[in-house]
Design a protein around this nucleic acid. Structure first.
Length: 432
RNA sequence: GUGGGUGUAGCUCAGCUGGUUAGAGCGCCAGGUUGUGGCCCUGGAGGCCGAGGGUUCGAACCCCUUCACUCACCCCA
């Protein structure tokens, strides 16, 4: 006998979980399509060189990489963004190209709460539009999705790499040290301003009056973009970044997104190296699970695969994290059965009548299950009850004789004998 | 990659300082006669106490090793 096991960090999705997951995916797809995004899928396997070197040092270590039978270096996709960049470079797609993709990605990470080695991302990206209007639209979609799923306690954090880069320049931080700077800055929420300042000094990032500037302007308060703006007065990149944030805020407001759902946040850094402009993240406070969505603009990325440079921006929902939050907050209401009605089997010689009746109900569009053995009625009813099937049809010799059937409402226990022709209608009324 | 925690029935767990046939609740199965579930009652199945080794007259319990799961850090969805 083989010990049944699945690899660490990988999971089976049992029907109960699948119903919730499918519901989430359906909700998201519908909203994505409402905004004009079109579906795309790509293979789970890519050549390793396509993925490697795109995610930064830490990221590269987490790529599932191996050799195929022909000795080619291949890798499981790490996210949906790089494959999209590859696609954008390979095909002449009409611009702007707005696509969505809901698919699993793989990371050789150590699993923990809300983190797995195989997990689903739900991405929307816009290729070929450099204006911040595109970035803003992504956030409008994000907000719409979260609202539709019943979320209310979340914050869309918004920042801009242009601002951060200009800031680093102003502080005299060398280009190659910027990732270090961002990493330290990113911890502001977790460890507080004092620790961040200390960390930056320990890393030797702050020379001259940089320490004072960081303390007084950067870390002083949460939303101190006025101070930041003053610091970046002379910088073209910096003011461009600030203008983009302004535009994004305006558009969110115009779209009807309440101000409490989003916030410009200078300490948002994002780990990936390839971001070039606005960057985003959505965090929830309730279960401490980190971000449920991340993304940003990556204007240089597609240029790695083609000479033609293409601006692009995108966001990625973490499906498992949405699920985790919904489960912990008890947001996953009706677990309900997909089967709407169960046709019982009274005895072996009435099987044909049962099958005929079930077929009739299915033709009328009802999800109908036929009980598969002439067990005791008690057992058949228990089956329906334990699965939450709301309606049961009993077809015994009495009913069969004159073309009728008993319809039982499993919630109330009420039951009626009806003409078989009227059954579908009655079940529909019962379900409503 | 670093550091904690936990592994006993399908699930959630009990099991006193090592002492005979390892328990509960829930779930599951069967029954409480004649065509009806959810409540109640009765009965039943189900455990190499994660695995391997050691100490001991004796180990679920102590020691070592190993595996699995889990949480935190790093990083991230």
């Amino acid at each position: 006998m083989i010990e049944p096991q699945i690899p660490k960090g990988f999971r089976d999705f049992l029907p109960q979980q699948m119903m919730l997951r499918r519901r989430l995916m359906a909700t998201m797809s519908a909203i994505f399509e409402r905004y004009g995004f079109v579906p795309l899928d790509t293979p789970c396997l890519e050549y390793a060189r396509t993925l490697e070197g795109k995610y930064g040092e830490e990221g590269d270590k987490l790529i599932y990489r191996f050799e195929d039978r022909g000795g080619r270096a291949v890798a499981l996709r790490y996210d949906l963004t790089i494959p999209l960049a590859r696609v954008a470079a390979m095909y002449q797609l009409p611009k702007p190209f707005k696509r969505y993709q809901i698919a699993p990605v793989w990371r050789a990470d150590k699993p923990q709460k809300g983190r797995f080695r195989e997990f689903y991302q739900c991405d929307i990206d816009i290729i070929g539009e450099s204006g911040a209007c595109a970035d803003a639209e992504l956030l409008c979609v994000a907000h719409t999705v979260l609202q539709a799923l019943g979320f209310d306690n979340y914050l869309i954090r918004i920042n801009n790499r242009k601002i951060l880069n200009a800031l680093a320049e102003r502080l005299g931080i060398a280009t190659e040290r910027i990732p270090d700077f961002l990493r330290a800055l990113d911890k502001l929420d977790k460890t507080g301003p004092d620790a961040v300042l200390q960390d930056m000094q320990a890393r030797g990032l702050l020379a001259g009056d940089a320490g004072r500037i960081v303390r007084d302007h950067l870390l002083a308060g949460g939303d101190n973009f006025e101070a930041v703006a003053a610091l970046l007065a002379g910088s073209g990149d910096g003011s461009a970044g600030l203008a983009e944030l302004e535009l994004i805020s305006r558009m969110l407001a115009a779209d009807g997104v309440d101000g409490r759902y989003y916030k410009k946040d200078i300490s948002l850094a994002r780990g990936l190296d390839y971001y070039t402009g606005p960057i985003f993240e959505v965090v929830v406070t309730e279960p401490r699970i980190g971000s449920i969505l991340g993304g940003g603009r990556y204007d240089g990325l597609i240029g790695l695969f083609t000479k033609q440079s293409m601006p692009a921006t995108g966001i990625s929902f973490g499906l498992e994290r949405l699920v985790t939050v919904m489960e912990e907050l008890g947001m996953h209401n009706q677990a309900g059965s997909l089967t709407q009605v169960l046709v019982t089997q009274f005895s072996a010689d009435l099987m044909d009548d049962g099958v005929r009746l079930a077929a009739l109900l299915r033709r009328s569009g009802l999800n109908t299950e036929l009980y598969l053995a002439p067990d005791k009625l008690k057992k058949q009813l228990s089956y329906a009850a334990s699965r939450g099937i709301p309606a049961v049809v009993v077809l015994g010799p009495d009913e069969a004789r004159d073309g009728r059937a008993t319809l039982k409402n499993m919630l109330t226990g009420d039951q009626d004998v009806l003409e078989q022709q009227r059954l579908a209608e009655a079940i529909r009324a019962l379900l409503a």
